[in-house]
Nucleic acid binder design. Structure first.
Length: 301
RNA sequence: GCCUGGGUAGCUCAGUGGUAGAGCGCAAGACUGAAAAUCUUGGCGUCGGCAGUCCGAUUCUGCCCCCAGGCA
Protein backbone atom coordinates (compact mmCIF):
# COMPACT_ATOMS: atom_id res chain seq x y z
CA UNK A 1 0.00 0.00 0.00
CA UNK A 2 1.17 3.49 -0.81
CA UNK A 3 2.09 6.06 1.76
CA UNK A 4 -0.51 8.74 1.52
CA UNK A 5 0.24 12.21 2.67
CA UNK A 6 -3.09 12.66 4.37
CA UNK A 7 -4.14 16.02 3.15
CA UNK A 8 -7.74 17.01 2.80
CA UNK A 9 -9.94 16.97 -0.18
CA UNK A 10 -8.09 14.92 -2.75
CA UNK A 11 -10.30 13.27 -5.30
CA UNK A 12 -9.28 11.12 -8.22
CA UNK A 13 -11.44 10.96 -11.31
CA UNK A 14 -11.29 8.11 -13.81
CA UNK A 15 -13.10 8.93 -17.01
CA UNK A 16 -13.34 7.91 -20.64
CA UNK A 17 -15.78 6.49 -23.16
CA UNK A 18 -17.83 3.35 -22.48
CA UNK A 19 -15.94 0.11 -22.69
CA UNK A 20 -12.60 1.78 -22.19
CA UNK A 21 -11.92 -0.13 -18.98
CA UNK A 22 -12.60 2.55 -16.39
CA UNK A 23 -14.19 0.31 -13.82
CA UNK A 24 -11.46 -2.26 -13.66
CA UNK A 25 -8.80 0.43 -13.42
CA UNK A 26 -10.74 2.14 -10.66
CA UNK A 27 -11.10 -1.02 -8.63
CA UNK A 28 -7.42 -1.87 -8.97
CA UNK A 29 -6.58 1.62 -7.90
CA UNK A 30 -8.96 1.58 -4.97
CA UNK A 31 -7.37 -1.58 -3.69
CA UNK A 32 -3.93 -0.02 -3.82
CA UNK A 33 -4.59 3.36 -2.31
CA UNK A 34 -7.38 2.67 0.11
CA UNK A 35 -10.03 4.23 -2.03
CA UNK A 36 -13.74 4.05 -2.46
CA UNK A 37 -15.57 4.42 -5.71
CA UNK A 38 -18.21 7.00 -6.51
CA UNK A 39 -20.24 6.34 -9.62
CA UNK A 40 -20.43 9.07 -12.26
CA UNK A 41 -22.58 7.27 -14.76
CA UNK A 42 -26.08 8.56 -15.30
CA UNK A 43 -27.54 5.11 -15.91
CA UNK A 44 -25.99 3.10 -13.15
CA UNK A 45 -27.92 5.08 -10.59
CA UNK A 46 -31.06 3.13 -11.46
CA UNK A 47 -32.10 0.10 -9.47
CA UNK A 48 -32.84 -3.13 -11.31
CA UNK A 49 -30.89 -2.02 -14.35
CA UNK A 50 -27.72 -4.00 -13.84
CA UNK A 51 -26.74 -5.94 -16.91
CA UNK A 52 -27.61 -3.35 -19.52
CA UNK A 53 -25.86 -0.51 -17.77
CA UNK A 54 -22.71 -2.51 -17.19
CA UNK A 55 -23.16 -2.26 -13.44
CA UNK A 56 -22.96 -5.98 -12.84
CA UNK A 57 -19.20 -6.12 -12.28
CA UNK A 58 -19.15 -3.33 -9.77
CA UNK A 59 -21.91 -4.90 -7.72
CA UNK A 60 -19.82 -7.91 -6.86
CA UNK A 61 -16.76 -5.93 -5.82
CA UNK A 62 -15.31 -5.81 -2.32
CA UNK A 63 -14.49 -2.16 -2.77
CA UNK A 64 -17.32 0.09 -1.59
CA UNK A 65 -19.22 1.67 -4.44
CA UNK A 66 -21.40 4.72 -3.96
CA UNK A 67 -24.31 6.09 -5.96
CA UNK A 68 -25.23 2.82 -7.58
CA UNK A 69 -28.84 1.72 -7.25
CA UNK A 70 -30.13 4.88 -5.70
CA UNK A 71 -33.35 5.51 -7.60
CA UNK A 72 -36.16 3.49 -9.18
CA UNK A 73 -36.37 3.57 -12.97
CA UNK A 74 -39.64 5.48 -12.98
CA UNK A 75 -38.38 8.27 -10.77
CA UNK A 76 -36.93 11.35 -12.42
CA UNK A 77 -33.29 11.92 -11.77
CA UNK A 78 -31.24 14.98 -12.58
CA UNK A 79 -27.88 16.64 -12.65
CA UNK A 80 -28.49 18.74 -9.55
CA UNK A 81 -29.59 15.71 -7.61
CA UNK A 82 -26.52 13.86 -8.73
CA UNK A 83 -24.26 16.70 -7.72
CA UNK A 84 -25.70 16.87 -4.22
CA UNK A 85 -25.41 13.14 -3.69
CA UNK A 86 -21.91 13.03 -5.12
CA UNK A 87 -20.70 15.78 -2.83
CA UNK A 88 -22.24 13.99 0.10
CA UNK A 89 -20.65 10.66 -0.80
CA UNK A 90 -17.25 12.22 -1.43
CA UNK A 91 -17.31 14.18 1.82
CA UNK A 92 -18.27 11.06 3.68
CA UNK A 93 -15.38 9.11 2.21
CA UNK A 94 -12.94 11.90 2.97
CA UNK A 95 -14.17 12.10 6.52
CA UNK A 96 -13.21 8.48 6.97
CA UNK A 97 -9.76 9.23 5.58
CA UNK A 98 -10.20 7.31 2.41
CA UNK A 99 -9.71 8.51 -1.10
CA UNK A 100 -12.75 9.06 -3.28
CA UNK A 101 -12.40 7.79 -6.81
CA UNK A 102 -15.03 9.21 -9.12
CA UNK A 103 -15.60 6.86 -12.04
CA UNK A 104 -17.83 7.27 -15.02
CA UNK A 105 -18.54 8.45 -18.48
CA UNK A 106 -21.19 11.08 -17.97
CA UNK A 107 -19.19 14.19 -18.72
CA UNK A 108 -21.69 16.64 -17.40
CA UNK A 109 -21.97 14.84 -14.07
CA UNK A 110 -18.21 14.82 -13.70
CA UNK A 111 -17.99 18.47 -14.55
CA UNK A 112 -20.66 19.30 -11.98
CA UNK A 113 -18.38 17.83 -9.33
CA UNK A 114 -15.00 18.90 -10.64
CA UNK A 115 -15.92 22.49 -11.44
CA UNK A 116 -18.51 22.79 -8.73
CA UNK A 117 -21.13 23.98 -11.17
CA UNK A 118 -23.64 26.39 -9.75
CA UNK A 119 -26.79 24.89 -11.19
CA UNK A 120 -29.74 27.30 -11.37
CA UNK A 121 -32.05 26.41 -8.51
CA UNK A 122 -35.16 25.81 -10.49
CA UNK A 123 -36.61 22.33 -10.30
CA UNK A 124 -37.91 20.75 -13.46
CA UNK A 125 -41.54 21.66 -13.84
CA UNK A 126 -43.15 18.81 -15.71
CA UNK A 127 -46.47 20.52 -16.40
CA UNK A 128 -44.75 23.57 -17.79
CA UNK A 129 -42.46 21.44 -19.91
CA UNK A 130 -45.32 19.45 -21.33
CA UNK A 131 -47.09 22.64 -22.22
CA UNK A 132 -44.06 24.16 -23.90
CA UNK A 133 -43.16 20.89 -25.58
CA UNK A 134 -46.11 21.29 -27.92
CA UNK A 135 -44.75 24.44 -29.47
CA UNK A 136 -42.21 24.62 -32.23
CA UNK A 137 -38.60 25.42 -31.50
CA UNK A 138 -38.95 28.68 -33.44
CA UNK A 139 -41.83 29.79 -31.24
CA UNK A 140 -40.01 28.86 -28.07
CA UNK A 141 -36.98 30.74 -29.26
CA UNK A 142 -38.86 33.94 -29.98
CA UNK A 143 -40.45 33.70 -26.57
CA UNK A 144 -37.04 33.31 -24.98
CA UNK A 145 -35.75 36.25 -26.95
CA UNK A 146 -38.35 38.44 -25.33
CA UNK A 147 -37.97 37.13 -21.80
CA UNK A 148 -34.25 36.48 -21.72
CA UNK A 149 -32.38 38.00 -24.65
CA UNK A 150 -29.02 37.27 -23.12
CA UNK A 151 -29.57 33.54 -23.11
CA UNK A 152 -31.23 33.70 -26.51
CA UNK A 153 -27.97 34.95 -27.92
CA UNK A 154 -25.98 31.93 -26.93
CA UNK A 155 -28.57 29.19 -26.94
CA UNK A 156 -28.82 26.33 -29.41
CA UNK A 157 -32.09 27.57 -30.85
CA UNK A 158 -33.01 24.35 -32.61
CA UNK A 159 -32.72 22.35 -29.47
CA UNK A 160 -36.09 22.19 -27.77
CA UNK A 161 -34.73 20.62 -24.67
CA UNK A 162 -32.39 23.54 -24.07
CA UNK A 163 -35.08 26.06 -24.90
CA UNK A 164 -37.47 24.39 -22.51
CA UNK A 165 -35.04 24.54 -19.67
CA UNK A 166 -34.07 28.14 -20.33
CA UNK A 167 -37.70 29.19 -20.47
CA UNK A 168 -38.49 27.22 -17.37
CA UNK A 169 -35.85 29.15 -15.47
CA UNK A 170 -36.92 32.60 -16.65
CA UNK A 171 -40.59 31.94 -16.23
CA UNK A 172 -40.22 30.66 -12.70
CA UNK A 173 -37.33 32.69 -11.39
CA UNK A 174 -37.56 35.76 -13.56
CA UNK A 175 -33.81 35.77 -13.92
CA UNK A 176 -31.65 35.16 -16.95
CA UNK A 177 -30.68 31.53 -17.33
CA UNK A 178 -27.27 32.40 -18.70
CA UNK A 179 -26.53 34.68 -15.78
CA UNK A 180 -27.40 32.03 -13.27
CA UNK A 181 -24.98 29.55 -14.78
CA UNK A 182 -21.75 29.89 -12.92
CA UNK A 183 -19.00 27.83 -11.42
CA UNK A 184 -18.14 28.12 -7.78
CA UNK A 185 -14.80 27.62 -6.09
CA UNK A 186 -13.69 24.01 -6.53
CA UNK A 187 -14.38 21.95 -3.46
CA UNK A 188 -11.63 19.42 -3.99
CA UNK A 189 -8.13 18.98 -5.22
CA UNK A 190 -8.70 16.84 -8.27
CA UNK A 191 -6.70 14.61 -10.57
CA UNK A 192 -8.51 13.53 -13.72
CA UNK A 193 -7.24 10.49 -15.54
CA UNK A 194 -8.70 9.70 -18.93
CA UNK A 195 -8.58 6.33 -20.64
CA UNK A 196 -7.84 6.66 -24.30
CA UNK A 197 -8.82 3.85 -26.65
CA UNK A 198 -8.43 3.51 -30.37
CA UNK A 199 -11.88 3.84 -31.89
CA UNK A 200 -11.73 0.75 -34.04
CA UNK A 201 -10.77 -1.32 -31.04
CA UNK A 202 -13.43 0.37 -28.98
CA UNK A 203 -16.05 -0.65 -31.51
CA UNK A 204 -14.98 -4.28 -31.28
CA UNK A 205 -15.09 -4.14 -27.52
CA UNK A 206 -18.53 -2.58 -27.54
CA UNK A 207 -19.86 -5.33 -29.74
CA UNK A 208 -18.29 -8.04 -27.66
CA UNK A 209 -19.58 -6.51 -24.48
CA UNK A 210 -23.11 -6.23 -25.75
CA UNK A 211 -23.20 -9.84 -26.83
CA UNK A 212 -21.89 -10.75 -23.42
CA UNK A 213 -24.70 -8.74 -21.83
CA UNK A 214 -27.21 -10.79 -23.77
CA UNK A 215 -25.53 -13.98 -22.61
CA UNK A 216 -25.70 -12.66 -19.07
CA UNK A 217 -29.44 -12.27 -19.31
CA UNK A 218 -30.19 -8.87 -20.75
CA UNK A 219 -33.36 -10.17 -22.41
CA UNK A 220 -34.70 -11.40 -19.10
CA UNK A 221 -33.75 -8.21 -17.33
CA UNK A 222 -35.48 -6.10 -19.95
CA UNK A 223 -38.56 -8.29 -19.91
CA UNK A 224 -38.84 -7.90 -16.16
CA UNK A 225 -38.40 -4.15 -16.36
CA UNK A 226 -41.00 -3.80 -19.08
CA UNK A 227 -43.53 -5.59 -16.94
CA UNK A 228 -43.26 -2.83 -14.37
CA UNK A 229 -42.24 0.25 -16.27
CA UNK A 230 -43.36 1.93 -19.47
CA UNK A 231 -40.91 1.83 -22.34
CA UNK A 232 -40.92 5.57 -22.81
CA UNK A 233 -39.28 6.40 -19.49
CA UNK A 234 -35.91 8.09 -19.81
CA UNK A 235 -34.35 5.18 -17.97
CA UNK A 236 -35.98 2.62 -20.23
CA UNK A 237 -34.83 4.31 -23.39
CA UNK A 238 -31.21 3.79 -22.47
CA UNK A 239 -28.94 1.98 -24.88
CA UNK A 240 -29.70 -1.70 -24.99
CA UNK A 241 -33.01 -1.57 -23.19
CA UNK A 242 -34.67 0.34 -25.99
CA UNK A 243 -33.42 -1.99 -28.71
CA UNK A 244 -34.08 -5.19 -26.78
CA UNK A 245 -37.52 -3.82 -26.01
CA UNK A 246 -38.17 -3.41 -29.71
CA UNK A 247 -37.04 -6.96 -30.29
CA UNK A 248 -39.28 -8.28 -27.51
CA UNK A 249 -42.18 -6.36 -29.03
CA UNK A 250 -41.55 -8.16 -32.32
CA UNK A 251 -40.61 -5.01 -34.19
CA UNK A 252 -37.08 -6.01 -35.13
CA UNK A 253 -34.94 -9.12 -35.18
CA UNK A 254 -32.44 -9.84 -32.46
CA UNK A 255 -29.62 -9.30 -34.91
CA UNK A 256 -31.02 -5.90 -35.77
CA UNK A 257 -31.36 -5.05 -32.09
CA UNK A 258 -27.73 -5.94 -31.55
CA UNK A 259 -26.62 -3.87 -34.53
CA UNK A 260 -28.58 -0.85 -33.41
CA UNK A 261 -27.47 -1.04 -29.81
CA UNK A 262 -23.85 -1.46 -30.79
CA UNK A 263 -23.89 1.44 -33.17
CA UNK A 264 -25.74 3.64 -30.70
CA UNK A 265 -23.14 2.82 -28.08
CA UNK A 266 -20.41 3.65 -30.53
CA UNK A 267 -22.00 7.00 -31.29
CA UNK A 268 -22.32 7.65 -27.61
CA UNK A 269 -18.64 6.88 -27.11
CA UNK A 270 -17.84 9.46 -29.75
CA UNK A 271 -19.89 12.09 -27.95
CA UNK A 272 -18.14 11.29 -24.72
CA UNK A 273 -14.77 11.66 -26.38
CA UNK A 274 -15.77 15.02 -27.83
CA UNK A 275 -16.90 16.22 -24.46
CA UNK A 276 -13.75 15.23 -22.61
CA UNK A 277 -11.42 16.47 -25.32
CA UNK A 278 -11.92 20.06 -24.25
CA UNK A 279 -10.74 19.59 -20.70
CA UNK A 280 -7.02 20.24 -20.73
CA UNK A 281 -6.61 19.11 -17.16
CA UNK A 282 -7.24 15.50 -18.01
CA UNK A 283 -4.19 13.25 -18.02
CA UNK A 284 -4.69 10.80 -20.83
CA UNK A 285 -3.33 7.30 -20.65
CA UNK A 286 -3.66 4.41 -23.07
CA UNK A 287 -2.59 1.65 -20.69
CA UNK A 288 -3.79 1.31 -17.13
CA UNK A 289 -0.20 0.87 -15.99
CA UNK A 290 0.45 4.48 -16.92
CA UNK A 291 -1.84 5.77 -14.21
CA UNK A 292 0.59 5.05 -11.40
CA UNK A 293 2.95 7.94 -11.89
CA UNK A 294 0.19 10.51 -12.01
CA UNK A 295 -1.45 9.10 -8.92
CA UNK A 296 1.78 9.00 -6.96
CA UNK A 297 2.60 12.58 -7.77
CA UNK A 298 -0.86 13.72 -6.99
CA UNK A 299 -1.05 12.04 -3.62
CA UNK A 300 2.41 13.20 -2.63
CA UNK A 301 2.01 16.86 -3.28
C1' G B 1 -37.78 -19.15 -72.87
C1' C B 2 -41.86 -15.42 -72.16
C1' C B 3 -44.31 -11.42 -69.12
C1' U B 4 -43.89 -7.67 -65.35
C1' G B 5 -41.23 -4.61 -61.88
C1' G B 6 -36.48 -2.90 -60.83
C1' G B 7 -30.91 -1.65 -61.23
C1' U B 8 -29.23 6.23 -58.61
C1' A B 9 -24.33 8.03 -52.28
C1' G B 10 -21.70 2.55 -47.67
C1' C B 11 -27.39 0.87 -46.92
C1' U B 12 -32.92 1.81 -48.01
C1' C B 13 -35.01 4.58 -51.63
C1' A B 14 -37.10 9.60 -54.10
C1' G B 15 -36.44 12.40 -58.63
C1' U B 16 -35.42 15.25 -63.40
C1' G B 17 -34.37 16.42 -71.26
C1' G B 18 -29.81 20.84 -69.20
C1' U B 19 -24.54 15.78 -65.35
C1' A B 20 -29.05 14.71 -58.93
C1' G B 21 -31.74 14.48 -53.57
C1' A B 22 -33.84 12.35 -48.53
C1' G B 23 -33.50 9.06 -44.32
C1' C B 24 -29.99 5.91 -41.98
C1' G B 25 -24.78 5.02 -41.48
C1' C B 26 -20.12 7.60 -41.28
C1' A B 27 -17.11 12.16 -39.95
C1' A B 28 -16.69 16.69 -37.08
C1' G B 29 -18.85 19.82 -33.26
C1' A B 30 -22.19 21.80 -29.16
C1' C B 31 -23.73 20.83 -24.19
C1' U B 32 -25.15 23.86 -16.27
C1' G B 33 -32.00 20.23 -12.66
C1' A B 34 -34.07 14.59 -19.11
C1' A B 35 -27.04 14.16 -20.71
C1' A B 36 -26.70 6.32 -22.74
C1' A B 37 -30.56 12.34 -23.70
C1' U B 38 -31.00 16.47 -27.07
C1' C B 39 -29.11 19.46 -30.98
C1' U B 40 -25.79 21.56 -35.26
C1' U B 41 -22.69 21.04 -39.66
C1' G B 42 -20.69 17.92 -43.77
C1' G B 43 -23.15 14.47 -50.08
C1' C B 44 -19.21 14.61 -57.72
C1' G B 45 -21.94 9.67 -56.89
C1' U B 46 -18.70 6.30 -64.35
C1' C B 47 -27.62 7.84 -61.85
C1' G B 48 -26.06 -1.14 -64.51
C1' G B 49 -23.13 -1.43 -69.72
C1' C B 50 -22.89 -0.15 -74.94
C1' A B 51 -24.98 2.40 -79.02
C1' G B 52 -28.71 5.88 -81.09
C1' U B 53 -32.03 10.45 -81.17
C1' C B 54 -31.15 15.43 -79.58
C1' C B 55 -27.51 21.59 -79.17
C1' G B 56 -27.55 18.49 -74.69
C1' A B 57 -29.36 12.21 -71.69
C1' U B 58 -29.06 9.76 -65.48
C1' U B 59 -33.94 11.11 -67.62
C1' C B 60 -36.33 9.21 -74.56
C1' U B 61 -35.21 4.68 -78.08
C1' G B 62 -32.66 -0.05 -79.14
C1' C B 63 -29.56 -4.03 -77.68
C1' C B 64 -26.99 -6.40 -73.70
C1' C B 65 -25.90 -7.73 -68.38
C1' C B 66 -27.76 -8.40 -63.30
C1' C B 67 -31.83 -8.84 -59.40
C1' A B 68 -37.04 -9.89 -57.72
C1' G B 69 -41.91 -11.81 -58.74
C1' G B 70 -45.32 -14.32 -62.22
C1' C B 71 -46.19 -17.74 -66.52
C1' A B 72 -44.27 -21.83 -69.07
Amino acid sequence: MLKVNSQKSKVIVILGPTASGKSSLAVKLAEKIHGEIVNADSRQVYKKMDIGTGKTDSLGSKIPHHLLDIVFPDKPFSLAQYQRLAFRAIDDILRRNKIPILVGGTGLYIRAVVDNLDIPKVKPNITLRQKLEKQTAAKLFSQLKKLDPKTAEIIDYHNKRRLLRALEVVLIKHTSFAELQKTKKPRYDILQIGLKTDRAILRQRIEKRFIQMIKNGLLEETKKLLKKYPANLPSMSGIGYLEIGQYLAGEISLQEAVNRAVSRTYQYAKRQTTWFKKDERIKWISKTSQAGKYILNFLKK
